[in-house]
């Protein structure tokens, strides 16, 4: 029997095990040492290494620069921010400094730092606490960006990120924290830059990102009832992107849907569609589809918020259209947003 733990606990375990192995690893961020431990993700490391988990002042740009400095001096900081929105205050140190230091010094230094952050959603958190800005980071030369969707990958990718000698932006999704999965107890790595095929299929490829992986898996089950065989790929790493896995799959299925938790316009979906059009054009049978957020900020009132987010239903309907099957109304399920009860 494999052990099951939550995504949040897997993150906690990864950090604690890395801290146990490497003296240089430490955690910092506002209330990382608190009882709540950033949605439970820093509770275990804090219990085991209380002197290596630091509460911080509210200074996101400063924290990033301090972390960069420690990494230049041989430490391996894990910086934690409870929302990706807060990272907008740290852009100078992330984009202009951390991402570039190694390159512009001709590899004189490594910058082994992990910036952990979370995409929020649900219960009216609104325009400043529920943004999904990962494509912004993916657009910056010098950054690696990972977005695990399962507990097992959450642990393995975090360990890879911690051991990586460059700056890795590690992006969680608030809806994933409570979801349990099989997680090996040992210290293991999931390679950065490798996507994972979750369901084999022959009709259409669904490349899904972060929480949309859950939605895509649900969609694949529904599609099977319609006689549509979908191949679901969990992208796992946004940059460097796993071109090979995507191109191989699309060459086989001839159809592509990208389901992202972020925006449709200038999003990761745009990048993947471009990639496929450039390198697998001859294999594509139907125009690819991007599923993502609309081009306006998320409203707070519940009906507006629910309407804002795409779900498995959108994936099913796009896949049916693609396959030329008009099978009528999709029986609707519980909307993920309505399920979320906090804490914020």
């Amino acid at each position: 029997m494999e052990r099951k733990i939550s995504y949040a606990a897997a993150i906690g375990e990864a950090q604690a095990q890395a801290m146990d192995r490497h003296e240089s690893v430490f955690i910092c961020g506002l209330e990382t040492d608190g009882e709540r431990g950033i949605f439970g993700t820093t509770v275990e490391p804090c219990k085991k290494f209380p002197h290596r988990v630091f509460d911080m002042p509210l200074c996101e740009n400063g924290i990033t620069g301090f972390g960069l400095g420690t990494s230049l001096a041989g430490m391996r900081p894990i910086m934690v921010h409870a929302r990706i929105d807060f990272l907008m205050l740290a852009m100078d140190q992330i984009v202009n400094h951390a991402a570039k230091w190694k390159f512009m010094t001709g590899n004189a230094f490594n910058t082994p730092m992990v910036i952990r952050t979370i995409i929020g959603r649900g219960k009216g958190q609104g325009a400043q606490h529920a943004q999904a800005l990962h494509s912004m980071f993916a657009g910056v030369a010098g950054l690696k960006v990972v977005m695990p969707a399962s507990a097992c990958d959450a642990k393995g990718l975090l360990i890879s990120a911690i051991e990586d000698d460059e700056t890795v932006v590690y992006i969680e999704h608030r809806f994933l924290h409570p979801i349990e999965g099989c997680v090996p107890e040992d210290y293991y790595k999931v390679p950065i830059g490798k996507a994972r095929i979750l369901t084999q299929g022959s009709d259409v490829t669904i490349v899904a990102i972060s929480h949309m992986v859950i939605e895509a898996q649900r969609a694949a089950i529904e599609l099977l009832k319609d006689g549509i065989s979908a191949e679901v790929i969990d992208l796992r790493t946004i940059k460097p992107i796993d071109e090979e896995t995507i191109l191989n799959s699309v060459s086989k299925t001839g159809g592509l849907i990208v389901a992202d938790v972020g925006q449709k316009i200038c999003g990761v979906g745009s990048e993947i569609v471009s990639l496929v059009m450039e390198k697998a054009f001859n294999f594509i049978d139907v125009p690819p589809v991007r599923i993502g957020l609309p081009d306006y900020p998320v409203p707070t009132a519940i009906p507006m918020e629910e309407q804002y987010y795409p779900s498995w239903i959108n994936i099913v309907s796009e896949a049916r259209k693609m396959m030329g099957k008009n099978l009528g109304k999709i029986e609707s399920g519980v909307v993920a947003t309505r399920n979320f009860q906090g804490p914020f």
Partner: peptide, 10 residues
Amino acid sequence: CCKGRGGSMH
């Protein structure tokens, strides 16, 4: 006051 777009925080 924000037409349902901002909530308590805005």
